[in-house]
Design a protein around this nucleic acid. Structure first.
Length: 561
RNA sequence: UGGGGCGUCGCCAAGCGGUAAGGCACCGGGUUUUGAUCCCGGCAUUCGUAGGUUCGAAUCCUGCCGCCCCAGCCA
């Protein structure tokens, strides 16, 4: 089935308005954006927002978007991350024209620009210690003081910078600083460090460099070198824009990308920072970065989210500058509406209780026919075995049913989906626990398939699985990771205190209709009346899928009762 | 108390001086062999707040209030 994405016209967000204007008034003929992750962690749903924006805008306006790794801090980065990031961006459905780019590819040019800055008298080597630099920087309300090394001659700076490059100084002793304004109300402009000594192994340049450029200095120049027209980043970089512009203006570069900031994504019932995600992984609170409860791209993929649902989600929430927290229900709604169209329907009993049809032949096994998708006959049908003993959901039987409850109970008749109408006879239970052990019913032979020739109506239709032919499966019921909307609301309470203890419930004795044995890893089906379930891509084995619940079906009964 | 941002329905979000789009949620009703889907209908006299300009303001101006970000040799 075709991947559906809503194509209704949405008003342009403020970034697209700027871009459309720039194109229309001729400022640019073609737009170029970039997605610049640091390879120091896994991508999450928040990155997806940025990816959809940058690659999306490029697609919509016939431009290009570069995937560029911002790898200027070798002490935190690793190739393993670049691989997972590339995989995730591809999986979301985006392509980059040129080969993958790296800020580290520009190290030689960045170095030359630094020399140029020194020659202009706009940068100097500072020997203040880290603590001293902080002290000299001043505070939010008091201006900083100038470094005693600020007035060095160009020659001396050149000499010292060369020595830095040659590895003659140890980490923390020398930095190259831009000479801007120690009294600026913007702390980023108080002679920011642009190069530091770092003797770490870099995943791409190895040990050739002993000094590494800082983000602010690197990013604007990398953008410029690639001819980026619009450099889109999150709100916290707003204060950095003057520095971004200063570097490009001071070096009088041939082009000057425009940095535009937008609000990052926040969702209810989760946390988004890399640091906190890392803490959950390292603390063993989740089963790794791709735990289906994690809102990492790899976690969502394993959970059963589709690329289209994530792209639609990003489209729905839009782009703006106000900080917001999107209701998790919006994301869930997107995956439901996508899966509703494409997932085949199946039956699976999660909490089985046996039903015996007293008047059904002892050794007969019939084949019932179920639609793979009631609204899409072209998706075909499958056979479902039926016999005297079946399992139904424990919650589909009630000893003393209320008026609104229209499932099985004393005196009740219900329909077994694609099966027969059955009539309650008796039930037995464990007196000690009150737990129902068995239910006896009779079936109406005239109602095969579920319709009564006399036209009588039954209120309830329940799902079932043949006891003899059913396939035992392991099902994991995943739910929101946290039990409160904003786990970070109270600064005095560790966010981990709010973990939802029921976020992962493993059911090892569920019983599914036999056709489920054919489910391939990564494939998703709808268990009727329950939700969408995806065969786990790493733990499923041939003929025996392990199922992850992606999301439940909407349930208006749950809220009514 | 320095600087930079943000404040439109429960949650997002259009609106760009001419009299409040849309989505999610929610509430009704219809269809239904999934209490699902689908379909119909309802849901801000009001735009943080107080003034001002104007025939006319959510949109322009001023003050006030609230929230977020910034003092890494992280990105």
């Amino acid at each position: 089935m075709e991947i559906l994405e809503d194509s209704e016209k949405k008003p342009l967000d403020f970034i697209r308005q700027i871009i459309a204007d720039d194109l229309q008034n001729g400022k640019h003929q073609k737009i170029v954006t970039r997605f610049p992750p640091e390879p120091n962690g896994f991508l999450h749903i928040g990155h997806a927002k940025s990816i959809c924006l940058n690659f999306g805008v490029a697609e919509e306006y016939a431009g290009t978007c570069n995937l560029r790794f911002d790898d200027t801090n070798p002490s935190k980065e690793d190739v393993a991350y670049v691989q997972s990031i590339e995989k995730d961006v591809h999986w979301l459905g985006f392509e980059w024209r040129e080969k993958v780019l790296y800020a580290s590819d520009y190290f030689p040019q960045l170095y030359d620009f630094a020399v140029e800055l020194i020659k202009q008298g706009k940068a100097y080597v500072c020997e203040l210690l880290p603590d001293e630099i902080r002290e000299y920087r001043g505070t939010l309300t008091e201006p900083g003081r100038e470094s005693p090394y600020r007035q060095r001659s160009v020659e001396e700076n050149l000499q010292l910078f060369t020595q830095m490059k040659n590895g003659e100084f140890s980490e923390g002793t020398h930095v190259l600083r831009a000479k801007i304004d120690m009294a600026s109300p913007n702390l980023n402009m108080r002679d920011p460090v642009i190069y530091r000594v770092l003797k770490a192994h870099h995943h791409r340049t190895g040990n050739t460099w002993k000094i590494y450029p800082m983000y602010d200095y690197t990013h604007c120049l990398s953008d410029m070198l690639e001819g980026i027209t619009h450099s889109l980043c999150t709100l916290e970089f707003q204060d950095h824009r003057p520095l971004y512009d200063w570097v490009l203006d001071t070096l009088s570069t041939p082009c000057h990308p425009r940095q535009i900031e937008f609000a990052r994504l926040n969702l209810t019932y989760t946390v988004m920072s890399k640091r906190k995600l890392l803490k959950m992984v390292e603390g063993g609170f989740v089963d790794g970065w791709d735990d289906p409860r994690m809102l990492t791209i790899s976690g969502l993929r394993r959970r059963g989210y589709t690329p289209a649902s994530i792209r639609n989600f990003c489209k729905t929430i839009g782009i703006g500058k106000s900080e917001s927290r999107i209701d998790m229900g919006v994301l869930e709604n997107e995956i439901r509406s996508d899966l509703n169209l494409r997932a085949e329907r199946r039956m699976c009993v999660l909490d089985p209780v046996k039903v015996i049809l007293d008047n059904y032949p002892d050794d007969l096994v019939e084949e019932m026919t179920g639609m793979n998708h009631p609204q899409a006959p072209d998706m075909g049908e499958r056979a479902i075995p039926f016999a005297r003993e079946i399992y139904i959901e424990r919650e589909d039987f009630m000893e003393n049913p209320t008026k609104k409850y229209h499932r099985l109970g004393p005196g009740r008749e219900v329909r077994l989906r694609y099966g027969y109408l059955i009539q309650y006879v008796s039930h037995s239970k464990d007196e000690a626990t009150g737990r129902i052990t068995e239910i006896h019913c009779t079936y109406d032979p005239e109602t095969k398939g579920g319709t009564a020739p006399d036209g009588r109506k039954v209120k309830g239709t329940i799902h079932w699985v043949c006891a003899k032919k059913g396939l035992p499966v392991t099902v994991r019921l995943y739910d929101r990771l946290f039990s409160v909307e904003d786990p970070e609301a109270d600064k005095n309470i560790d966010f981990l205190e709010h973990l939802n203890p029921m976020s992962k419930v493993i059911i090892s004795d569920a019983i599914a209709e036999p056709s489920l044995a054919a489910l391939q890893p990564g494939e998703t089906v709808q268990f009727e009346r329950q939700g969408y379930f995806c065969a786990d891509s790493v733990e499923s084995i041939a003929g025996k899928p392990v199922l992850n619940r992606t999301v439940t079906l909407r349930d208006s009964w749950e809220s009514k009762k």
